[in-house]
Design a protein around this nucleic acid. Structure first.
Length: 94
DNA sequence: TGTCCGCGGGTGT
DNA sequence: ACACCCGCGGACA
């Protein structure tokens, strides 16, 4: 747990709470941190993404549903979202 | 849709 | 203290 600022901690915390197969907006995360207008700062925090494997940062997308960006590539982010969606579907069927 | 501006926090200088 | 970066959001045309 490298030196994270309080704000970054809040962001990561909020992001880690996002349920599997679901998505939230940057504004949503920002609201969770108590800084509703700090959406850009949220993006920066997620971009740094100290724990890519622990934080579902790919579940955080823009409010209009578009992918803002992703540290490992937007295409991968899309794939991950689709993949989770598919997996979730499998669980519902079986 | 496309453009523009305000926004908060982190980091470098 | 200042400037610049950033995975945004909302307003407006």
């Amino acid at each position: 747990m490298p030196h994270l600022t309080a704000f970054e901690g809040q962001v990561l915390k909020a992001a880690s709470v996002i349920p599997f197969g679901e998505t939230r907006s940057y504004a949503w995360v920002a609201a969770k941190t108590g800084r509703p207008k700090a959406v850009r700062a949220v993006g920066q925090a997620l971009n740094k993404n100290p724990f890519p494997l622990l934080i579902p940062c790919h579940r955080v997308i823009a409010k209009d549903g578009t992918i803002g960006g992703f540290a490992f590539g937007v295409s991968l982010k899309k794939k991950l979202l689709v993949l989770e969606k598919e997996i979730l579907k499998q669980f519902c069927q079986k």
